[in-house]
Design a protein around this nucleic acid. Structure first.
Length: 568
RNA sequence: CGGGGCGUAGCGUAGUCCGGUUAGCGCGCCUGCUUUGGGAGCAGGAGGUCGCAGGUUCGAAUCCUGCCGCCCCGACCA
């Protein structure tokens, strides 16, 4: 491709709207342009990337027996009403104004619809159906470039099986296929076991990439691979010690002391000697939650423990409930249910609020003074704590969800009445699995992991071109014809070459654009080297430059690009 | 939806607090000449409903009101 005739609008400066590296690079390297919040146009080079990633996904899906569909984005609302998902999606689903259609946010219903009455016999099963298409979701807040958009490309696959045992096999196939896909894309990822929530499935796994731009927080153990969403993650921590002798309760004046840190500073005590109180409202009744020091309440765990509706108490209602404002609340004298984190179990000589502003109470013995207290795992794990599997320090960080596989069961086949007949002529609902990959997220995650201060660094599998050929001074006839000839020859060899043949662009301009675009190998034809029969090769990832005789160029390129031109 | 920030030429921005020439600068773009190994130089030029709509004022990019758009944090995210 000749750059002089191509639409690759690179930018020297960082666009004002972009914040995270992948977003900045996509815009700067001319891959995408925003049309509206969460809605992006892919420009020719960017679209080429999408096709590369899609092809990798396609190959691995086909390898496990997947069959590709092309499905409508415009769906009759009726079919979504049958599964109750118009209501479930709520405002997240786009509705068409002048006809009873919706824009598909995913495709379980449509795939299931097509299975109905056609896949009728156990002999027809299993099936794996997939598609790589645009989905629409009315996200309240699109963000981070293409990572959360209102319109996005998703590969979604659905498996149809005779039983849960058979589903296990389809699930396993996808698990393996996903690992191959992400490996081939060169991503550093990890797998988190997750609950599949309202999808009604049993087992599910998320494929995640560590990133500050992520929307999930996970705990991960580098050593043994333990990974869990922060909402459910557990860790090994030191419980507080129970002293052999319990002190007496004493009320202490603590003017203007609100936080645990201030309290520790004021009384010259350790965090672990304090019990922090949080008030939650559970089904209209206040519950006091005690945590050790600055440990954070994990509200997901709390909800699981309590059941029903749980919300934090509003600051205004605290005084009425406890007699004090936040910062001075404690278990002594609290009328209502008191629960505490396991870490505090049977603690004594503890300091907590006095339920009177500007006072705390010391010498609290939970066994003696708070006999009704119940203990649960209520805390949010933190970096550095012990892995529950191997005791190594775990890491807590944000991550982007790239893909999700889960065992769906019969939710949709039940709702839509999609059954098959077994060997005995008996009817059963087909058992489904559902498997998604965010295609743009693969691209974004790759960029998050593979860039430097100069720009993108493509790997061999994803790069939009094999070689970036740069003719330095195209107004020099000799360079012009030499680089043009080289372009034709390399193209004939089967290489996909991006040829910077721009007449006016200066050398530095071309070098910087090349580094920004990140094609793995740059071949530079300039006067200095060419008059000695040489060109220069630069490896983008390492920055290493080498002068090569023109006569050796092809063999050198073969050597460098051997593994990526296996198709030729 | 709550909180914060921003909106001035294709891109990045100054000016806004404290109203007052023809709205400035850098990059990019067009023409010509020179230049070509790390975002060239000189000369000339084009390009603006200052997000939109009202209002205050002799006068509004600037002050007031409403709306729209974009970004960030939070809520939400089968």
């Amino acid at each position: 491709m000749r750059l002089s005739k191509s639409f690759v609008p690179t930018l020297k400066e960082v666009p004002a709207d972009a914040v995270i590296p992948s977003h900045i690079l996509m815009v700067r390297a001319g891959l995408v342009r925003m049309l509206s919040a969460g809605i992006y146009s892919f420009l020719p080079v960017g679209y080429k990337m999408i096709k590369k990633i899609s092809d990798i996904i396609r190959e691995e899906m086909d390898a496990i027996g997947g069959q590709e569909f092309h499905l409508p984005a415009l769906n009759p609302k009726e079919i979504w009403e049958e599964t109750g998902r118009v209501e479930a999606f709520g405002d997240t689903m786009f509705h068409i104004k002048n006809r009873e259609y919706v824009l598909a946010p995913t495709h379980e219903e449509i795939m299931t619809f097509h299975a109905k009455g056609v896949v009728k016999s156990y002999k027809d099963l299993p099936q794996i159906w997939y598609q790589i298409q645009t989905k629409f979701r009315n996200e309240p807040r699109p963000r981070s470039g293409v990572i959360r958009g209102r319109q996005f490309l998703m590969k979604d696959a659905y498996s149809f099986d005779v039983s849960y045992e058979a589903l296990d096999k389809s699930y396993e196939l996808h698990d393996q296929a996903y690992r191959k896909i992400f490996d081939r894309c060169g991503l550093k990822y990890f797998v988190v076991g997750a609950s599949s929530g309202a999808m009604g499935g049993s087992k599910s796994e998320e494929f995640m990439v560590k990133s500050d731009a992520g929307e999930d927080t996970v705990a991960y153990c580098e050593k043994c691979g333990y990974a869990a969403n922060i909402e459910v993650a557990e860790s090994v921590i030191q419980p507080i010690v129970r002293h052999s002798e319990s002190k007496q309760i004493e009320k202490i004046s603590t003017p203007n002391i609100k936080s645990i840190d201030e309290l520790c500073e004021f009384l010259k005590i350790d965090h672990r000697e304090t019990a922090k109180s949080r008030i939650y409202i559970h089904d209209d009744k206040p519950v006091l939650v005690l945590m050790s020091g600055n440990d954070e309440v994990n509200e997901t765990k709390l909800e699981r423990v309590l059941g029903g509706n749980v919300r934090p108490g509003h600051p205004e209602e605290l005084k009425e409930i406890t007699g004090a404002d936040a910062g001075s609340i404690g278990p002594i004298g609290f009328k209502g249910r008191i629960i505490a984190d396991n870490r505090l179990k049977d603690g004594n000589n503890l300091y907590s609020g006095a339920n009177e502003n500007d006072f705390h109470i010391g010498g609290i013995d939970l066994k003696r003074d708070v006999p009704t207290v119940e203990y649960f795992d209520l805390r949010t794990v933190e970096s550095g704590e012990g892995c529950v599997n191997c005791k190594s320090p775990i890491d807590v960080f944000k991550a982007i969800e790239l893909g999700h596989i889960f065992k769906l069961g019969t939710k949709y086949t039940d709702a839509l009445g999609v059954n098959y007949l077994d060997e005995n002529g008996k009817e059963h609902p087909i058992v489904m699995g559902s498997y998604g990959i965010g295609v743009e997220r693969v691209l974004a995650c790759y960029l998050e992991q593979n860039h430097d201060e100069r720009g993108i660094i493509w790997n061999e599998n994803l790069t939009p071109f094999h070689i970036h050929l740069i003719g330095l001074n195209m107004k020099n006839d000799e360079i012009n014809s030499a680089s043009s000839n080289l372009y034709n020859e390399l193209t004939k060899e089967g290489y996909d070459v991006l040829f910077d043949d721009r007449l006016d662009a200066s050398a530095g301009f071309k070098f910087n654009d090349a580094d920004l675009m990140g094609i793995p190998i740059q071949v530079v034809v300039g006067e200095k080297n060419y008059k000695n029969g040489n060109v220069e090769i630069k490896i983008r990832r390492t920055g290493k430059k080498e002068v090569v005789a023109l006569s050796n160029l092809k063999s050198k390129l073969r050597e460098l690009l051997n593994h990526l031109t296996h198709k030729h």
